[in-house]
Nucleic acid binder design. Structure first.
Length: 275
DNA sequence: CCTCTATGGCGAA
DNA sequence: TCGCCCTAGAGGC
């Protein structure tokens, strides 16, 4: 379930449940032996940057977590029951516990290492004061498709396959359009939209992108629940009718990930005739 | 039971 | 571009 909003939300949940407390840390599954180094120490804070999560403990130690495609980090209230399944890391206090499963990364790192990881990321729409022009300087000079650039964490941090598909739809932009053909006003509008959409995602824990005027009630469609739990225009809707124009949603892999777009609402870009 | 898929990202070829 | 890592759930037989 991990795009940037998931990690941001998780940082808030972990902070609320554990900040300032001495916590027990263990690896029931055994694949994070370094848990012993923070076990019984005070957890100071949890923060996120793009899709990275950092849990800070006293002594300048950070547990760096990247959920990858299938990872989960569930925070629960109450006393911890015996672990179920492959629990990589469990954090426990008397009033709460959190279980990490399936992460691609769970490492103990130094402050320097954390700063290096964060420094390699592009601006994060969820970070107050993030500078979108840092992303624009890359996009505006690139021949790569905008759909590719949006997923590049060094260009823009936190956007994954769902937000990519949906932001491009909302801005009527074909995913294969070269970055350098965008106007700055178009990029700015997309950035502002991401700030709002991802902010909502942090609050709700899901990705909803459908404008009020296109909701099932307004459009006279039956209500539906998408597999990923949010209301969307094109993500994973290949072959189905576009909620706006009725065209069949298309899909095609790009760099190993599936693009989704509406051929009616997101026409293929044609470069302006020169002269 | 098996196979497939998934909101990611890495490194080898 | 491909294979691979991580885990759980859904669907087919």
């Amino acid at each position: 379930m991990p795009e940037g909003h998931t990690l941001h939300r998780l940082a808030g949940q972990l902070s609320a449940a554990f900040s300032g407390q001495v916590v027990r840390a263990s690896s029931p599954q055994g694949r994070f032996a370094d848990a012993v180094h923070v076990d019984g120490t005070r957890l100071l804070d949890a923060t996120s940057a793009g899709k990275h999560l950092f849990v800070e403990f006293e002594g300048d130690l950070f547990v760096h977590v990247h959920l990858g495609l299938i990872g989960k980090f569930d925070v629960h209230a109450g006393a911890a029951p015996p672990p179920v399944g492959q629990v990589r890391l469990r954090l426990t206090v008397p009033t709460a516990y959190a279980d990490l499963r399936g992460a691609t990364q769970c490492d103990l790192v130094s402050r320097d290492r954390r700063d290096t990881i964060v420094g390699a990321l592009g601006p994060d729409p969820l970070r107050p004061g993030a500078d979108p022009m840092r992303a624009w300087s890359r996009i505006s000079r690139s021949h790569r498709p905008i759909g590719d650039l949006l997923m590049d964490q060094a260009v823009l941090a936190g956007v994954g396959n769902v937000y990519r598909a949906e932001i491009l739809f909302r801005h009527r932009m074909h995913p294969l359009r070269p970055g350098r053909t965008l106007r700055v006003s178009q990029f700015r509008a997309m950035w502002e939209d991401l700030v709002e959409l991802m902010g909502t995602g942090v609050q709700t824990g899901r990705i909803d992108t459908v404008h009020t005027e296109h909701t099932p009630e307004v459009m006279g469609r039956p209500p539906r629940v998408d597999d990923h739990g949010g209301e969307v225009y094109v993500y994973r809707r290949a072959g189905q009718a576009c909620h706006v124009c009725g065209s069949r949603i298309r899909t095609e892999p790009l760099q190993g990930r599936n693009l989704f777009w509406c051929p009616g609402c997101q026409p293929r870009f044609r470069s302006r005739a020169v002269k």
